[in-house]
Design a protein around this nucleic acid. Structure first.
Lengths: 341, 341
DNA sequence: ATCCTCTATGCAAACGATTGCACAATCGAT
DNA sequence: ATCGATTGTGCAATCGTTTGCATAGAGGAT
C-alpha cells in the first residue's frame, strides 16, 4: 500500500516550509540552523506521513554512499564469517554498510564485481582476496579509493594498508610445539605461494626449523595448489608416496589439515599415533573433528574490526597512508599432536 | 588519480552528440535506436575517457536499484554460507546484487537494518530470519515490496512466498532410520517452536513416531531455547537427568546434535554405543566430527537459487503471488547411529 | 528613528542519469 | 514534385536530496 512515495517535499508541504528546511532538520549537523519548534513539527510530519529518506538521492548529491565493498574468496570457507562479522560491526558503528561478494579466486570475476561496486560508488574497499602480485589491487589504487587488505597482503602495498596475522610467528609456534614434543623430522604442506599467507607461513616454517636447529629436507615440503581439503589430501598423499620418513606435518591452514586427515585414513594411518598434524586459523568446529585439531588461533573478529576502522580512517583523512596492522596469533593445543612413537 | 569524474555528459561532448544519445547506446534495449556508427564512436569514447556508469543516478531515475536485501540470523552458522552462494549466483545471473546483513535474531536490529535497506531502495527482500509470528514480515508486506522467505517460513505467509525444506518429511526419515535399526525409545531435542523449522520438525517427530507405531513419551521431548550447540548441550543434560531410559535422540538441527555430543562426553557416555544421535541440515564438516553425524541433507544451494528466482519473478510480475516451494530432504547415514545395545 | 548585525528560512542549481515528446532528415510511393 | 511514414537525435523535465547564496525580519546600539 503505502509504498514510500513520500519525499522530503511532501513533508515540507505538510508543515508549510521549504524542502531545504526539512533537509536541514533531518541532518544532524545542520539541525541547529532551524528553530526548535519548526524542527519539532518537521519530525512529527515525517512520522505522520511515513517518510523514508532516499539514500540514493542523498548519495548522488553528497558523493558518499556510506558503503564499503568487501571482496572475499569464498564465504563457505569458515574462516571468513567471523571476519565478516568484525567488519560489519566495525562499519555499522559508523553508520556504514558492507557490500559483500565472493570472487572464487577468479581475477576476471573479481574485476566484474569491482566494476559493479565502483558503479554503486562505494566509499572504499576491504579485500580479503589479495594475491602477492595482484592487478585488482593496482586497479583500486589507481582509482585512488581507500583500500584495506585483510588476512592476506600483497607484495608492495603502496597506498593500500593491510591488516594481517603474523603468519611466520604463528608457524613458529607450531614448530616449537612439535619440536618440544620430540619430533625431529617435520614435514610441511604449504598453501599456494602466490598468496601471502601461503608464502609467509612457508617462509616461517623454514626459519623456525632453522631456529630450533632441526634439519629440513626439501622432500618433506610440498606446496598445495589451493587452500582446500582436496588439495590437502593430495599433498599429504604426495608426501607419503615420497617414502621419506616423518613423524609430524605442519600445514598451511585448517582445510589443508583436514584434507591430510583424509589421506591418513585412506592409507590406514592414525593421527596422532603415527603422524602429528597442525593446522592454522582455528576455524569453527575444528575442535569437534577427530582428532581435535591442534592449530594456530588468529583474531578473526578483531581483524575485521581493525580493517573496518582502517578504511573509515582513510575515508576521513584522504591524504594519509595509515599504518599496517599485524595481529598476534596463539597456539591452541588439541588432540592431533602427540609425542612421536 | 583518474577518480571517475567522467560522466555521460563528457562522453557526449567528446563524440559531439547529446547525452541522451549516449544513454541510449549504453542501455541494451535502446541501443537499436541509434546508428551503428555513432554507437561505435560512443563505445570507444567511454573506453578512452574511462567512463564508469553511476548506478546511483541510474537507480534514482529508474526507481530500480537492482539490489536485493538479504537478512540472515548469523553468517557464522555454517548452514547459511551455501544458501547465500545460491542466492548470489541466482541474482547475479539477472544482474542483481545481494545486500546481506545479520540480525542476530534481534527484532529491533532487524528493523534497523530493514530501514537502511529500504532507504537504499532495494527492489526486494529475501528473509532467512522468519519467526512463526513475525512483525518484520508484516512490515515488509505492508510496504508491498517483493518478499521471499527462505529456510524458515511464517504462520500465514500472505503475500510473501516461501522456499523451505519439507522439515516434517526430513524428520520422518530419521525416525524411520532409527526405528529400522531397532530403537524403541527415541527422544527428541526440538528447536525453538517460534521458528517454523523447530515447530515443523517437532510436529514431524510426533507424526513419524505415531506412523511407525512407537510410543512417544512427553518426558522424552525437550525444547531447546535456541538452535545452538550450547542449547543442545543443556537440552541433552535435561533429558539425561530425567532418568527416563532412551537409546536414541533425534535433534532439530546439527548444532543441537553437536551440543548433545558434548553432554554425552561430559557424562561419560558414548555415541553411538550408548545413544544414537541424528542431526538436521548436513552442514559443512559434520562428516568430519567424531562420530561423523547421521543427519538430514537439505538443498542449501538450490534453496538459495530458488529464492533468488522467486524474488526476481515477483519483481517482474508485481501483481502475482507465485507458488511456495518445498524442497525434498535426504537422509545421510554416518557413524552417529547404530543398533541399540 | 536609523543603521547594522544576526539568524532563520527560501531559492535554485546542482548530483548523473533516463525518457516522452518534438522535430529534422530520409525515403518510398503516388 | 508532394505527401506521409519512418528513423535518428536533440530537448528538457525528472528522480529526491543537499547547499551556497540571497533575503526578510528581529533585535540591539547609537
Amino acid at each position: 500500500m503505502a509504498r514510500a512515495k513520500v519525499t522530503i517535499h511532501d513533508v515540507a508541504n505538510a508543515v508549510g516550509v521549504h524542502p531545504s528546511t526539512v533537509s536541514r532538520v533531518l541532518n544532524a549537523n545542520t539541525r541547529h540552523m532551524v528553530t526548535a519548534e519548526i524542527a519539532q513539527r518537521v519530525i512529527e510530519a515525517t512520522r505522520a506521513l511515513g517518510y523514508h529518506p532516499n539514500a540514493l538521492a542523498h548519495s548522488l548529491r553528497t558523493r558518499r554512499s556510506n558503503t564499503i565493498g568487501v571482496l572475499i574468496p569464498d564465504i563457505t570457507n569458515p574462516v571468513f564469517p567471523p571476519i565478516l562479522r568484525g567488519i560489519e560491526d566495525g562499519l555499522a558503528a559508523a553508520g556504514y554498510t558492507a557490500m559483500i561478494a565472493n570472487t572464487d579466486g577468479a581475477a576476471d570475476r573479481a574485476n566484474l564485481i569491482l566494476e559493479g561496486m565502483l558503479a554503486r560508488r562505494v566509499d572504499g574497499f576491504i579485500l580479503a582476496t589479495a594475491q602477492r602480485k595482484d592487478p585488482t589491487i593496482d586497479r583500486c589504487v589507481a582509482e585512488d579509493i581507500p583500500l584495506v587488505l585483510i588476512n592476506r597482503t600483497t607484495k608492495s602495498t603502496g597506498r593500500a594498508i593491510s591488516v594481517v596475522t603474523d603468519d611466520a610467528a604463528g608457524i613458529a609456534l607450531t614448530v616449537a610445539h612439535l619440536a618440544g614434543l620430540g619430533h625431529k623430522r617435520i614435514a610441511h604442506i604449504a598453501g599456494p605461494l602466490h598468496l601471502s599467507t601461503g608464502y609467509e607461513r612457508h617462509r616461517g616454517f623454514i626459519a623456525a626449523m632453522d631456529s630450533v636447529g632441526l634439519e629440513r629436507q626439501p622432500a618433506l615440503i610440498v606446496v598445495a595448489e589451493a587452500f582446500s581439503e582436496h588439495a590437502g589430501e593430495r599433498a599429504m598423499l604426495t608426501l607419503l608416496d615420497r617414502g621419506k620418513k616423518f613423524t609430524a606435518v605442519v600445514t598451511g591452514n585448517d582445510l589443508l589439515a583436514l584434507g591430510a586427515y583424509d589421506a591418513l585414513n585412506a592409507r590406514g594411518l592414525s593421527c596422532p599415533k603415527d603422524i602429528s598434524i597442525t593446522g592454522f586459523n582455528d576455524m569453527p568446529f575444528v575442535d569437534k573433528v577427530s582428532p581435535p585439531l591442534t592449530t594456530v588461533r588468529i583474531q578473526h573478529y578483531e581483524m575485521g574490526m581493525r580493517a573496518a576502522g582502517a578504511v573509515l580512517e582513510r575515508i576521513k583523512e584522504p591524504g594519509t597512508r595509515g599504518a599496517d596492522i599485524r595481529l598476534e596469533p596463539a597456539l591452541v593445543v588439541r588432540g592431533s599432536t602427540a609425542r612421536p612413537a
